[in-house]
Nucleic acid binder design. Sequence first.
RNA 1: GGGCUCGUAGUGAAGUCGGCCUAUCACGCCUCCCUGUCACGGAGGAGAUCGCCGGUUCGAAUCCGGUCGGGCCCGCCA
Length: 588
Amino acid sequence: MRTFAQDTVNNVGETVTLKGWVNSRRDHGGLIFIDVRDHTGVAQLAIRPEQAEAFARGEQLRDEFVISATGTVVEREEGLRNPNIATGGVEVKVDALTILNRSEPLPIQVMGETMANEDLRLKYRYLDLRRPKMQDMLKKRADMYQRMRAYMDAHEFTEITTPILANSSPEGARDFLIPSRLQAGKFYALPQAPQQFKQLLMVGGVPRYYQLAACFRDEDPRSDRLYGEFYQLDLEMAFAEDGEEVRAVVEPLIKQLATDFAGKKLLSEDIPRIPYLEAMERYGSDKPDLRYEMELTELTEELKNTEFGVFKNALKEGGVIKAIAVPCRHHMFSRKEIDEFTEIAKKEGAGGLPSVTYEAGGFRGGIAKFLSSAESATLEQKLQLDAGEDYGIFFASDNRRVANKVLGKLRAYLADRQELKDPNVIALAWIVDFPFYETDEKTGKLDFGHNPFSMPKGGLAALKREDKTAIIADQYDMVMNGYEICSGGVRNHNPEILYKVFDVLGFDKAYVDERFGAMISAFKYGAPPHAGCAFGVDRMLMELTGESNVREVVAFPKNGSGVDVMMNSPSTVDVAQTDELNLRIIEH
RNA sequence: GGGCUCGUAGUGAAGUCGGCCUAUCACGCCUCCCUGUCACGGAGGAGAUCGCCGGUUCGAAUCCGGUCGGGCCCGCCA
């Protein structure tokens, strides 16, 4: 009868068989200790020369050999116990030992503190996954899936799988294309999201749909963005005409994941709704981390009579002056540090980074000499400076968009640097009211701000407004600790309004019919209003488990170049295969 | 596509403003010893053309140019 490592404590006096990997071997010449590891932990085997056959095999064991050991569980004597491991009070006196498989010396270390670089870990992911931390991660992901399914089922959502072989979508990310054999010269595409299918399910009479959906996008990855494939908790609700209906349904699930599942504290039970423009003004970002304050403070009015040339020029050109006050905590920012921050500001489009320090209740250095005593007093009050604390104060004077962007970037960077993020706290927020259309900074042309299929607030009438950039999309993102974890919207189920949405950008009916034929035609046959959203499962799991790289929460991720270094994919294929698909590979 | 950064035994690091490097340390590996260890211990040993190519120099892991690979960021991600 097989017993697991952690169960040995409950089997004192009994004969057990442990199967697992050799975690470590301590050969004393006349006595061999083996720590055998399985998915439950490690247990100590003691092999004595009296069991000659087992002892001889014990001498051959090396790290990561796979063994089966049978023997009696005995209580360890006083002084021989190891309080550091769960099974440290017992050991197995081995009678018989079988080597089930041998192992060559490992290319990466499974046990111990040194960890190989990521490239090697990914190449030998099957070894990397043996590490308890990775085992734990796999279990956590499964646990999260269970909780999501249980919650969605309990709220009368029906899980429906939608096609993986889908169609190329002209909007959005780059597609993965799949050549069709039966339809020569045509292509499927892997879905970037089940967006159109789930909306068609609404037309199909499904009241509430959800899916743990695989999504595919061929875009360059980031530390919080996987290459290629990722998972979303995708959901949609028929007859929801107000985004609040969706938000109210999903909020308890996310809170439960943050607390019960991740064991963290919520910054607040009430999840704020922050309009996009307000988020940009206060945080310089549409995905602000609310665990720390450091809000952007506008000082345009307060400094309108400034003597400082840079500010004067900005104001003359209709710009704004904004600032953030950064608590110093340990020591005042050095010249070198401020230079470093300046580089960041410049990268975001700032000309420089005017600054001043606030020490011992007064402004010093930097632009301090340009501040009148009246201005100093106003700044102190507007920036809510605490005389007992020292601050570095950083300014942006530019057009509103750039000023917000610069300080927003700096706010996030400095919060990290100053360790203002509490890892045990989850701060949630809904960012709402995204602009439907935006002007492209470079071309000056009008384009969709986000998702063309969401409902413009105010419907058809709103679309006829003169200032198109003032049209608001009924769209909402959920932000968790500075990461966008969910995006959703009230969908546009009205063909007339949908045509108009594209008409604003100069696309005619034929364009819409050609590209979104199934959807626009379905909407003509009694489409119910509907709204929904989709949560990024991987990113959420990353933040909830305190990882800073999303690849850490995926069993077999691709690297930054889109390569699976373990399987060596993508790879070339036989000419016979490409011939069958009517494809010709052009050598580069 | 662009910027920054890293590349040294199987693994992780040190050395990187030219010579004390015949390249250091730890883990791992091999041989021998060891009956109470638990990251066992002890003695000994093997293992690196310093990512690759070229250049400068009396001399290059170290400087320069190129190239390949990784990571982070920008663009991109409706």
